[in-house]
Amino acid sequence: MSRKVVQPPSLRIIPPLNFCPVEKQLYRSGQPLIINQSFLQDLNLKTIIWLASEEPQEEFLDYCSMNSINIEFVGMINDDYSYQNVNPWDSLNETTIKKALELICDRNNYPMLVCCGMGRHRTGTVIGCLRRLQGWNLASVSEEYRRFTGARGGRILVELLIEGFDISTVEIDPEKVPQWLGKRDK
């Protein structure tokens, strides 16, 4: 029995692990890999916020420079803005969250992807704080965070960080803020 090939195998698009849209032109995911390239291409990214404490893979950096995507290594900065003594097992600190949020609040950086190694806890922390900035109630924030944390579930420490984060410290330029974050309704 012979089978004729009538059409070429169709192209399959592979989003990065834990990928999900957050808001218009703002996305979240784990670390993108080579196989995600054709997917990323469609997003037309301008900025990637890298929240892990380690360097991303070489290919990923190459991909970004080839497509002139600006990577912000927010997760690798320390309190004193040195790039030292950041441990992968530490949670994000207030400074890094603040820095990430201020990048998110500038629509000139869009379309934007927020990611870390797996797209679970560090990404979840920043998106959680963003939701608080949007005025979401904490239960909804927690529900969203836990949706992306996988079988081992959410970390209380991350949720404490989200709840305790002082959103008033985030400096927002009203000229640059994306519409969905701007003044809500009249």
Binding site: C20, P21, V22, E23, K24, Q134, G135, W136, N137, S140, E143, E144, R147, R184, D185
Partner: peptide
């Protein structure tokens, strides 16, 4: 109803665009 806290429905998420 207009003054309610911002509470998305459960399982809310953007799908695409």
């Amino acid at each position: 109803l207009r003054a309610q806290e911002v509470t998305p429905p459960e399982n809310f998420a953007p799908v695409i665009n």
